[in-house]
Design a protein around this nucleic acid. Structure first.
Lengths: 337, 337
DNA sequence: GGAAGGCCTGAGAGCGCTCCCACAGCTGGT
DNA sequence: ACCAGCTGTGGGAGCGCTCTCAGGCCTTCC
């Protein structure tokens, strides 16, 4: 029985099954209060007609949209750069499969639209995943005060009431530096990320902890970049000028590590013989340099997956949602250290 | 007047404006048949109450969802790799700003869900952007036969009735090889992409055209890879064994070019002195190798933008939608050639 | 001055669904 | 045998919106 009929309605299903619309609805919504026979009849009718519920009609009465918004508040290069965005989306999507929720993407719109976002969101999505690198994103505060649940990608620089999921940047940086220490490095410098992002702060904190612990040097071998290749190159150059005797550089991003590699080569330093280099992100570029880059791997897809899990907890139950979920990072050893 | 009232309805707007719900609706929907005074009153009321239409209610009656689906049928590495996915999404999102359409993301779900996709799509989205690398994607045929408009990202290997937007792979490859010819290269080999993807076929075609035109050699200096670094490395190695005298390699992806660089180095060939290398994609890795990679730039964001434009044409009007929209590519010269 | 036509408006139906409520048919306790 | 209680069912209202239709008012033309 192929049906030409576009979009059968619950009413038709009920008619075919010989029940009322209400009972058919109960079957669709997995209500336990349906007799086995009625359930079977309705299920048969659903299959025969190829019925799928009309989402709009359902939303109208339930006041839920069964969709969640992935909001990217800024078009930061770091966010769209590999592997972040694609990996995150993949993880989110994985976790959403099996659910009948859909993912609505909202990239940084113009500021005037931004002001309407709060209302927009509350109309169209049941929950929000917010990706925003910088501290003073107004949307963040709107969401914190608003009625719809939201989960942040990454620790916000200032504490908020919103739960976040993050990778363990502190531990990753710590592992990287420990690895350098274990390799006998004495003067370990870092090219840190921007200090107005938690990810920059955390990676620097991990570096500091490991360096202090090793007590190899008491100077401050820190320079700050912006995660880009260019800033890494300039940073490494500056480090070499100020402290010609450094024998290792921990860069807070792979791109900055690549820049450092370039600066070191120009300065005639051999990697890893003279100076060891470790990056962070474990991105594609880590395998395309020579030597290949030792780097800290971060499970971004899992971060996406966890964000959905947390959001569903917030959506469904009275369960307390953890205010922070931190996923482990691990060092991937390659030729540069 | 801050309103605590969550979600004012059209009825309330109308009441405040002193009109009927119908007139308020006309104002919201920009109907011309409203008197200036009524329009002004309703607009005032809308602002005062912070009214935003309930999408579900609207969808229910208009039978449109005002959202379009971005369907990624396979989790090909190439698609999620930088810069493709993020750039495409950014372009799509740009083109959607200003519209009140929303973007719904649908990644490759399980096969069993796949079978329901057609129905799912017709329920929930007004149009589809389909990203699918391989030829025999069943969804492609479903969409071609189905009622909802769809636009493909990239030329399908076999012609379909669906319009597509693509970057000019043929021309890009042609330019790359012409550049090598102009640089005096005599024996130009290529590491082609998979021949079951149009992108692989087209880039090889561009190579062949340029090589034939230059008539520098009549041998077939072609080896096939899968766009990955590893396959590029193996491919270059094979080329060097079979044709030790090659003086240039055009790789159909940057990652394969990176692999080629590695193979060439191992073989003791200098780049670009002994062998010139050109890649394709102009991705981040092109700037992280040494020497940096000459590569063909492809406007992926614009592709996303154009896809939306085509889709809206298909959605809105009786306008004929071009069956193909091809965007120019251009060569970015760097150190490797 | 009256009919014809224009413009704007409001009443009302209904999109497909969920959920409240009433009630039919059983069981089981007294 | 009677009432309580429980389970499963259907009727019906109504979510917020759009759109058709009828009609009121005002202009315009004969």
């Amino acid at each position: 029985m192929t049906e030409n009929d576009p979009r059968p309605t619950l009413e038709e299903v009920a008619a075919l099954a010989g029940t009322s619309r209400a009972t058919a609805s109960r079957v669709v919504n997995q209500s336990p209060k349906v007799s086995p026979s009625a359930r079977a009849a309705v299920e048969r009718a659903i299959n025969e007609l190829g019925y799928a519920p009309n989402r709009a009609a359902r939303s109208l009465v339930t006041r839920r949209s069964d969709s969640i918004g992935l909001v990217v508040a800024e078009s930061e290069e770091r966010i769209f750069g590999e592997p972040f965005f694609a990996s995150l989306v993949r993880g989110v999507s994985d976790a959403l499969a099996g659910t009948d929720m859909q993912l609505v993407l909202l990239l940084n719109r113009s500021d005037q639209e931004r002001s309407r976002v709060q209302r927009f969101l509350s109309t169209h999505v049941d929950g929000v995943l917010l990706v925003s690198a910088h501290a003073e994103e107004p949307l963040l505060h709107q969401l914190a005060d608003g009625p719809i649940p939201a989960i942040l990608a990454g620790r916000p620089l200032r504490p908020t009431s919103l739960p976040y999921v993050d990778v363990d940047n502190v531990s990753g940086a710590y592992q990287a530096v420990r690895h350098l220490v274990d390799g006998g490095r004495q003067r370990i410098a870092t090219i840190a990320g921007p200090q107005d992002m938690a990810v920059g702060v955390d990676r620097l904190a991990g570096y500091r902890t490991a360096v202090d612990e090793a007590a190899t040097s008491d100077e401050d071998l820190v320079v700050v970049g912006d995660f880009s290749t260019g800033s890494g190159e300039r940073g490494a150059q500056e480090l070499l000028e100020r402290h010609p005797d450094i024998d290792a550089i921990f860069a807070a991003s792979d791109l900055m590590a690549v820049g450092a590699l370039q600066a070191l080569e120009r300065a005639g330093r051999k990697v890893p013989a003279d100076v060891a280099v470790v990056g962070f992100d474990d991105s594609v570029v880590a395998t395309t340099t020579r030597p290949q880059l030792t780097s800290v791997h971060q499970p971004i897809s899992d971060m996406g997956r966890q964000m959905i899990l947390r959001l569903r907890e917030a959506l469904e139950g009275p369960t307390l949602v953890p205010s922070a979920t931190v996923l482990p990072t691990n060092l991937v050893r390659r030729g540069s250290s």
